[in-house]
């Protein structure tokens, strides 16, 4: 094996910021979408629902948890156009990652909501809170705090999983790596570098998670 030599990659360094930007864009927007889906679906699934609605939501959750992310991505980007729904690859990636991660995180939210003491609902009700107000002001803040660690894990996962988007015509980090590999034949250095970049991103997130948890743990049950 030759010794590590990063210099042949240097000419391509200028492409890195754009690729990083796209990775972060997909990761962050996907996570935001996942969060919204998780809160809405998790809240709905934590209560008694009309049969049809309950079935629909559990269908969504089961399907997205039970099929490969890659297949979901292909379906959204290559499959949906047959149904007349076309979108940019970045959009398709965001939507797929959001739906996929949302299905997992909604289960975390649901479990955290079910863990909130029934007395909280009764106390809020007796003070005059409507069920919606109770959910927004009393139950969700408590459930979210319990769910913070799994949310931050979810965020890390999304960032890492964005590499799968390299199968679409969009130049995010992994795709850039593949392209530079094709031009320079330095896979060892390229994929080490790629790994380091992803690691830095998720490592930063674990710090953010710890900070959030510290902030949130001003209060105890």
């Amino acid at each position: 094996m030759n010794s590590l030599d990063f210099s042949p990659l240097l000419p391509y360094a200028g492409l890195l910021p754009e690729a990083l930007k796209i990775t972060l864009e997909i990761g962050m927007a996907g996570f935001m979408l996942a969060l919204v889906i998780a809160v809405v679906v998790g809240t709905l699934r934590s209560r008694k629902l009309p049969k049809a609605a309950g079935f629909l939501l559990s269908f969504y959750v089961e399907v997205f948890r039970g099929t490969p992310l890659l297949v979901q991505l292909f379906f959204v980007y290559y499959g949906l156009p047959s149904a007349g729904i076309r979108m940019e690859p970045v959009m398709a990636a965001i939507l797929t990652m959001g739906l996929n991660s949302g299905s997992y995180l909604s289960e975390n939210i649901r479990a955290s909501i079910l863990a909130v003491d029934k007395g909280q609902y009764e106390a809020a009700h007796m003070l005059g809170y409507t069920p919606l107000q109770t959910n927004i002001h009393i139950v969700l803040p408590q459930a979210m705090r319990v769910a913070i660690p799994s949310f931050m894990n979810g965020f890390s996962s999304i960032i890492k999983e964005t590499s799968i988007v390299s199968v679409l015509p969009v130049i995010e980090l992994t795709k850039l790596g593949n392209q530079v590999y094709a031009k320079t034949y330095h896979p060892f250095e390229i994929y080490i570098l790629l790994g380091v970049i992803y690691f830095c991103l998720t490592y930063f997130l674990t710090f953010l998670a710890k900070w959030l948890e510290r902030r949130a743990s001003k209060w105890q049950l």
Partner: peptide, 19 residues
């Protein structure tokens, strides 16, 4: 549900809002 405007309740286990 309408009686909440006239009746307040204090529970054995407090049920304060911890957050």
């Amino acid at each position: 549900n309408s009686v909440v405007h006239s009746i307040g309740m204090v529970f054995q286990n407090f049920h304060l809002f911890p957050h």
